[in-house]
Design a protein around this nucleic acid. Structure first.
Lengths: 87, 87
DNA sequence: AATTTATTTAGATAATATTCTAAATATCTA
DNA sequence: TAGATATTTAGAATATTATCTAAATAAATT
């Protein structure tokens, strides 16, 4: 697994993921929710993409990002396996 | 929730949590598994403690750390709520 | 083809995180 | 109580991350 936890470590990135759970969004639509430059946002999106927490697809002029639910599930499983053996 | 994701972002810290799922360990026992200084380890333990991912209890000369399963469960729930609404 | 709109990349700066050595604190044992 | 062991804290060095502005790329529109 690429570093999914690093991807989740930043609050802006978690917020992006949270937006994407409702519907796919292009970069401009995501940008409206944050007071940071496009360049910074692009950087965050890239980290999410490398962590495979999102996928992206170009539609004409726009790039749409989607939540990669599969990876979210993998993280959940990884955390479940972190739980204690017995108590 | 204090920053649990920050706590999970570092591989050394995840390894510490993984050790603790088997049994509680004191700092010296944990230290044996890592090639870093006591000071660095102590720093990591502090981050885990502040994120409430672990609890600690002093027994005489030793400080024992335990996994806080409750918080791990909270993180799992938080991730579950990150999943897509429909597909 | 020139202009506008959307997104990414380059390069710099500032903020955070990780690590270290050295010193401090606390407890145990002789 | 003096010396040994366990852990934490202070302070500094280095590495990583987040952010910015400016420039580059790509597609759409006129």
């Amino acid at each position: 697994m690429p570093d999914v936890f690093k991807g989740l470590a930043d609050p802006t990135r978690r917020e992006i993921l949270s937006l994407l759970k409702d519907r796919d969004l292009n970069v401009g639509e995501i940008a409206k929710h944050f007071p940071i430059s496009m360049a910074s946002l692009s950087h965050h999106l890239n980290i999410l993409y490398e962590a495979r927490l999102v996928t992206k697809i170009k539609k004409g002029q726009f790039v749409y990002y989607s939540l990669n639910t599969t990876i979210v599930e993998d993280v959940i499983l990884k955390l479940v396996s972190l739980q204690k053996k017995e108590e």
